[in-house]
């Protein structure tokens, strides 16, 4: 690993100032689970690394008076999994955080680091998109708040601009009757990275949901919100409707096709996973294949 200056600012403002001063040769480190590997392989050779580990503002999970839940970018996955606030209002996210990657990553990696890295083969982005989460970005120029759709730009690419860092993840105020399901497909039980995942988030009665958001991720370069899932809104979910939505989801995506799985296989997995997950979400029998 080559030499670099290691900075440990104690405020977000100081971190932003260090990023602005450092330019392209500066990298941010949250948990470091991805960055340290890249440093060791000398895929990145920054002159400066700005660690966020001492910034108290980036930790903690709080609920605002508005009901929104704010998760600091440096909250570890294990903390998300164990948070009563998250488990109480968004159990799908707590569950996801409890199975993400492996114990080492869950106890070191952070939610903000995960989102900033923008690896498609991971769990949180799709779930947060389904929930309707937003992110707050900070720089010396100020603060901006983006939806997940705006933040997740492309394959390994986010809307983060040079000099900007992800400060918080905002979950919307819990809606009445909100219900979530997260499911993923691993090639083998020993694998940590999902080959495909689906996230379902509905509001209102499960027997007649007012809002349904279905997101497919990991099988695609960026998570995809499936518009066809809206056909389940304001109606009694049926097995036929679920099958139709699952098929539409599989056709709507442009699946990744690589050494882990080819595109058509991923498409099939998405259809089956979506059908099973929707059936489970709405309490219907169903095991499409």
């Amino acid at each position: 690993m080559h030499d670099f200056d290691y900075l440990e600012p104690e405020t977000i403002d100081a971190a932003c100032a260090a990023l602005a001063a450092g330019g392209e040769d500066t990298r941010i480190m949250a948990g470091g689970t991805a960055l340290i590997l890249a440093l060791r392989q000398r895929l990145v050779m920054p002159l400066r690394v700005v660690s966020l580990s001492r910034i108290a503002e980036l930790r903690g999970i709080h609920q605002a008076d508005s009901g929104e839940i704010s998760i600091g970018a440096c909250v570890r996955h294990a903390d998300v999994a164990q948070s009563p606030l998250v488990a109480g209002h968004y159990p799908m996210l707590a569950h996801l955080a409890s199975v993400l990657a492996n114990p080492q990553v869950r106890n070191q990696g952070t939610l903000g680091g995960n989102l900033s890295y923008a690896d498609p083969s991971t769990d949180p982005p799709g779930c947060l998109l389904a929930i309707g989460a937003q992110v707050v970005l900070r720089s010396v120029a100020g603060e901006r708040r983006l939806s997940m759709e705006e933040f997740l730009v492309d394959y390994f690419e986010t809307a983060l601009q040079p000099g900007e860092l992800l400060a918080r993840i905002i979950l919307p105020a819990p809606a009445a009757g909100a219900h979530g399901t997260y499911a993923r497909h691993l090639r083998t039980a020993a694998e940590h990275r999902p080959m495909a995942n689906v996230s379902i988030f509905s509001a209102g009665s499960l027997a007649r949901p007012k809002k349904v958001r279905l997101v497919v991720a990991a099988a695609t370069p960026v998570p995809v919100l499936i518009e066809a899932a809206r056909m389940l809104e304001d109606a009694m979910p049926t097995c036929a409707a679920i099958e139709a939505v699952a098929s539409a989801a599989a056709m709507a995506i442009e699946p990744l096709s690589d050494a882990r799985a080819d595109g058509e296989y991923r498409r099939t997995v998405v259809r089956v996973l979506a059908a099973r997950s929707l059936a489970g979400h709405f309490g219907l029998p169903g095991d499409a294949s």
Partner: peptide, 12 residues
């Protein structure tokens, strides 16, 4: 003779 920059997350 072309110079092409490619970025994958924080790796350029």
């Amino acid at each position: 003779l072309a110079t092409i920059k490619v970025r994958i997350s924080f790796v350029s």
